[in-house]
Design a binder for these strands. Structure first.
Ligand SMILES: [Mn+2]
Ligand SMILES: [Mn+2]
Ligand SMILES: [Mn+2]
Ligand SMILES: [Mn+2]
Lengths: 216, 216
DNA sequence: TAAAATTTTTAGATTAGTCTAAAATTATTA
DNA sequence: TAATAATTTTAGACTAATCTAAAAATTTTA
């Protein structure tokens, strides 16, 4: 078995790998709020366990074994988030920290039964895909609102920023997962966008448009 | 906040206190599968935090603060066990180890919502009382089958032994929580007992009769 | 392509929890 | 009540995870 610290490192490396293939010590340190020296120590340990490929100064990638563990943590995180929102009526901006703890509960039986209990959901409350019990999932094809053209329309299906302040803002604007939107106006000067959503017009800034993801 | 190790010590002291008022170092070591030397170290730490009353060589008691934490862990343990059995279809002999992990999830919001989601159950799958969000509960008045007389009857409401082998045995004999039983015969020689339960006769040994608890 | 800047690793401490072995204290019992 | 037994504490060591400060390697840049 692995400690929850090891699991957190593997998960962090997994998420960073989606951006950059090879992951650096400093990237990991930043994403775990720790120091580069601590990361180096842990990388040695994970390399000894053959969960990562690590050569000094060269960054790391996950081995198949490491990726399998990372995916199982991601699966648990997202299933628990779904449970919290759908069964216990938490808001989508309140679940992340609790899921950070729950994702380290080790019982595979528990998580597989929880999955069945909830009807095997495919996406978590933030639109992120939930790996199945074999680690398999398919992501939506998503693009940011900022990449749409005038009169394009689509369905809100994910977010690029998971911070509670962003999620709360979207909630307030009623721009939540599943809502249909259409681009009513694009402001050339500041790149802000006016959306049509359920007969209302919603004006969002360039930043928001960049972090709000649409499927067509 | 307290570490889960500290929480485990407080919970162990709480359970042992129900038997013996003052709890000894060796009792704690036995119940946590650790060594007396380790226990002494932890007792100092818990005493520093004013969670226990501790005087060298004299054993310990919980302070009000320590008892409050212990009860919150017991509450979480039992509510999660209830969830596992009632919502996820675990058997009553399969839930303890998973609950040992889940009981350390720190969110109070989570456990209070879980409690509401399940309809605020008063007893866990083994008949043990579930403290409410203020740590209050009332236990059944329970007596072992071995203390009953011929033709006494009652309802199975708890167990004294929580081992899976005992729970599995009771399951096989269909002697589970809620079943009505009546003492049909008492064997003077080996103190075994024959019960009437749902028109069937069940023969149980002295040991089983000692560990099976009845409310009248 | 050599100096400067940045990143990464090493060295040496620290904290929490655990252990064994030995010393101190308390309890038993003859 | 003094010897013996049992319990409990102390002393010293170990592992996992972390940190700061310094050294080493790599990358940038002029
Ligand atoms: Mn999350
Ligand atoms: Mn999520
Ligand atoms: Mn239990
Ligand atoms: Mn129980």
């Amino acid at each position: 078995m692995n400690t929850s610290t090891e699991e957190n490192y593997l998960k962090a490396i997994y998420h960073l790998s989606l951006q950059s293939e090879n992951v650096s010590t400093n990237q990991i340190a930043a994403s775990l709020n720790t120091k580069a020296a601590s990361v180096t120590d842990m990388l040695k340990k994970l390399a000894d366990k053959e969960l990562i490929n690590y050569a000094k100064y060269q960054g790391v990638t996950l081995t198949p074994g490491g990726e399998k563990i990372a995916l199982s943590i991601v699966r648990k995180h997202r299933l628990w988030e779904y449970f919290l929102v759908e069964k216990l009526n938490f808001k989508w901006d309140e679940v992340h920290d609790v899921a950070e703890e729950l994702e380290h509960i080790s019982s595979k039986e528990l998580i597989d039964r929880l999955d069945d209990f909830m009807g095997n959901p495919k996406y978590d409350p933030h639109g992120d895909p939930i790996p199945d019990c074999n680690g398999l999932f398919k992501a939506h094809e998503l693009k940011p609102v900022s990449s749409l053209f005038l009169n394009d329309s689509g369905i809100i299906s994910g977010v690029r920023d998971h911070s509670s302040s962003f999620l709360q803002y979207l909630e307030k604007m009623q721009l939540t997962i599943g809502k249909k939107i259409k681009v009513a106006e694009i402001n050339d000067y500041d790149h802000s966008v006016i959306l049509n959503s359920e007969d209302k017009k919603v004006h969002i800034s360039r930043d928001v448009a960049n972090n709000l993801l649409i499927s067509l």
